[in-house]
């Protein structure tokens, strides 16, 4: 917001916190919906919403690049592919997901509490997580070039390792897909599946 000095100061004083709470108010119910919605595809879409609000939090922290990467890769790329995979493979998930919740209630609560305690303790011990105070001085463009440089110099091993991991996953996916029957069988299979799915959804409508 260069060129608007007064507006910037006014916004920093009044708007920033309000926007944070607004994003939190949107993000928490969405996240709750992801866990609790009976329809797994709808919770997939809610997850996209959660990622978008988290991207909003990144923007509040003046990490533009991370926010955009969050939207482009997690929000639209990965989650959408997962949702589509769910649509294609598991139309009955809404019925199956309910008993799973009630059977594993005890362990689930334990894991949730344990994770919460870990994160809470880690965040509370501020001396182990030193917060850099001079970061705000970096402009967004410098920030961007610094991310690029450190990815290809200091953290190039991690960067390359992640790409090898993805490559392995891709090869695995190709192997899985290769094990499928020949193409004409596949077409028949998907046609059958489509029929199955549409008839099931019609059944649901009748029941409702």
């Amino acid at each position: 917001m260069e060129g608007f000095p007064q507006l910037t100061t006014w916004a920093q004083a009044n708007v920033e916190q309000a926007v944070f709470y607004l994003l939190a108010v949107i993000a928490i119910p969405l996240a709750y919906g992801v866990v609790c919605d009976r329809n797994i595809i709808r919770s997939g879409f809610l997850l996209i919403g959660v990622f978008s609000t988290i991207a909003g939090l990144f923007i509040l922290l003046s990490a533009q690049f991370l926010a955009l990467a969050q939207i482009m890769i997690y929000g639209v790329g990965i989650t959408l592919v997962v949702v589509i995979a769910l649509m294609l493979t598991n139309p009955k998930a809404e019925k199956e997901s309910m008993p799973a919740l009630s059977i594993h209630k005890g362990p689930a609560i334990f894991v949730a509490c344990f994770l919460f305690m870990c994160v809470y303790l880690a965040l509370r011990s501020a001396e182990n997580w030193p917060v850099k105070t001079d970061v705000a001085a970096l402009s967004a463009a410098e920030n961007l070039s610094r991310i690029g440089q450190s990815l290809l110099t200091n953290y190039s091993f991690h960067f390359e390792f992640a790409s090898i991991l993805l490559l392995a996953a891709l090869i695995g996916a190709v192997m899985l897909a290769k094990a499928e029957p020949a193409v004409h069988d596949l077409n028949e299979l998907s046609a059958n599946e489509d029929k199955l799915k549409s008839s099931e959804r019609a059944d649901d409508v009748v029941k409702v």
Binding site: L68, S139, A140, A141, L144
Partner: peptide, 9 residues
């Protein structure tokens, strides 16, 4: 500053 990347995202 993230210009075109913002537009694409």
């Amino acid at each position: 500053p993230t210009g075109i990347f913002y537009v694409l995202a």
